[in-house]
Nucleic acid binder design. Structure first.
Lengths: 340, 340
DNA sequence: CTGAAAGCGCTAACAA
DNA sequence: TTGTTAGCGCTTTCAG
């Protein structure tokens, strides 16, 4: 009944080889795709694997092959709101799903401050991972500076301010997208239009403000710009602030949907109806967009597609196919709903 | 000027040993704490390490030692709202910080569906990690079932329904805590009191409802129970629902602060003032609690302390100090603010 | 298509 | 306190 072997040591490739009556090398070939193995032998080996409940020892494989099978998703967020940004969740989900498809794993890591960024830098360059995907970065990204001299395969999500040429990245044309959505807004309301921006040390934050400014043209009022940090509460505070400054506010461009939800809350709290009193447009078309009543008019930010492209570029780098940084600009589109 | 060696192979422990004029074993001792090494030798080795820019090869170390230096934080969330729960962020932050302190790394992994849970199960039992910390789990947790026969060091955050005896966990007394905060609420308002619960297939969801029921006693109205899923939007919908059913609602216990923020939004949208028309109390004392006006009266959920205790228990398991599951119930306390 | 054999870089006995 | 020496389990040439 019970296995006569008392100590249940994990079976190794050697055990499988013995049971299948082949060599270690052949088993290795089988578990690595089964190329150049006769079907009969392949079946025999697979049977032995099942019988023994064998699974590969990653450490040994890493050591022998020099590859780890893990990719890091780095969220180096200096803000309080770790994980609050719904886009992180989408990125993580897509990365995780796609890597699993190729038998690899996603490893999410975070760094809250410069010290943590240093340790993280060590980690990334220490051979723990085959490559890294970096969530939108800040201007003062010491991690990027640290990673620069290394040749770690790396793709940044969004333009990395100050490192645009040094690293590969995937982004959208934030300026143009913001221009589009704000033009839509101004086509529908007459009167003062304000904006709640993203953090201005990020490319997206800056570029979306720039697009808004261009769309508004003469109408642009510097006093109706509130700086947010992508968080719900900053949208709330920003809108409250703008309303205090301009009670006659008629339109509001909020640089992310999550902040827009906060902004609408603040408008409501101040007794304004949306969109009748104040029209609001957001950005991202994230889950938050349809969470409010009325649902947000917003720009679609193709997070899923960005994730896929980033992964593709990363794999090119890992495989040595891409020698120099690759930059990809995806297009976005207006999504009309009820808010603006 | 330039290193005469053309191929810049990563230096190994052997290179360090040669440069420092000692054996490989001694270098190993130095990089593993430096016990039983003469100060002079220790300095020499460290100098060699610096000179060569040596860093340990993890794969080799794992293979030789059987340890990985990584701990998994498993978020197996079937809901849409991956990462939305602010408690996850706090857990991740504390784990990350504490592990770094001992030279280890946190690896966050997710599983959205049963298939992913299976792959994740493989991953966890394949020797990639030394142990795992599981975010609050569901009743139908196939991952736990899968992990049961293995002896992976593991601590669950919150009581794992159906597996209370099988695994170690750290939790609070949700029933008692909910009783406390709802009693506070009923002490301040007269009239119908409702609740927006967490998911009822989780221990916290169920127990908080139970505590609410006990506090309300005869006043408890089954028709004033709305089931949420910890997300902001579910709090919003829940409150709207309850208000539709009972326009005279006077008090509301929302089982998480994030949902409470949503609930307050819905109350506002329906023209109610908080706390004058409807008093609201939340749960968790998360960052969301002070994000709203008025700030939430809530129960403090000692997430940071839970994280530390869970890590302590996990380390006991890893070190083989704890043979059987350990269960820890932390205490929570009422935080009075303006909402209820 | 398959087997043999040489490592991958490190840890952990064991001796000295 | 230090050096020596087996491996850890796998991949990957290189022959055949």
């Amino acid at each position: 009944m019970a296995n006569p072997e008392p100590a249940r040591r994990r079976p190794t490739i050697e055990d499988v080889a013995r049971l299948a009556g082949v060599s270690r090398g052949t088993v290795s070939r089988v578990i690595n795709g089964g190329r150049n193995v006769r079907p009969v032998v392949l079946d025999a080996v697979n049977d032995a694997i099942d019988a023994l409940g064998y699974s590969v020892n990653q450490a040994a494989r890493n050591l022998a092959s020099g590859r780890t099978g893990s990719i890091a998703f780095v969220i180096s967020d200096r803000e309080e709101s770790l994980f609050e940004d719904p886009n992180f969740g989408v990125f993580a989900r897509v990365f995780s799903r796609e890597l699993r498809r190729t038998g690899r794993h996603l490893l999410i890591t975070t760094a809250q401050d410069e010290q943590e960024e240093n340790t993280l830098g060590d980690y990334l360059t220490l051979g723990h991972v085959d490559g890294a995907l970096l969530a939108p970065t800040h201007e003062d990204e010491s991690l990027l500076r640290r990673l620069l001299p290394h040749r770690l395969p790396l793709v940044v999500l969004g333009k990395p301010p100050g490192f645009e040429d040094a690293f590969s990245w995937v982004a959208i044309d934030d300026e143009k997208a913001a221009f589009t959505v704000v033009s839509y807004l101004t086509g529908r309301v007459a009167g003062p239009v304000g904006t709640v921006t993203g953090p201005l040390h990020t490319s997206s934050g800056r570029d979306r403000l720039e697009g808004c400014r261009r769309a508004l043209g003469d109408q642009f009022r510097p006093d109706l710009v509130a700086t947010g940090d992508w968080s719900l509460s900053s949208g709330q505070q920003g809108a409250a602030h703008l309303l205090a400054r301009e009670p006659g506010l008629r339109g509001l461009f909020v640089a992310s949907d999550l902040m827009a939800v906060g902004a609408i809350g603040a408008l409501r709290a101040a007794g304004r109806r949306v969109p009748d009193d104040v029209a609001v447009v957001g950005f991202d078309d994230s889950a938050a967009a349809t969470m409010v009543e009325p649902a947000l008019t917003t720009m679609r930010n193709p997070i899923e597609q960005s994730a896929l492209e980033a992964l593709r570029i990363l794999d090119d780098q890992i495989a040595g196919r891409a020698r120099r940084p690759v930059h990809l600009l995806l297009s976005s589109e207006l999504v009309e709903r009820g808010s603006g």
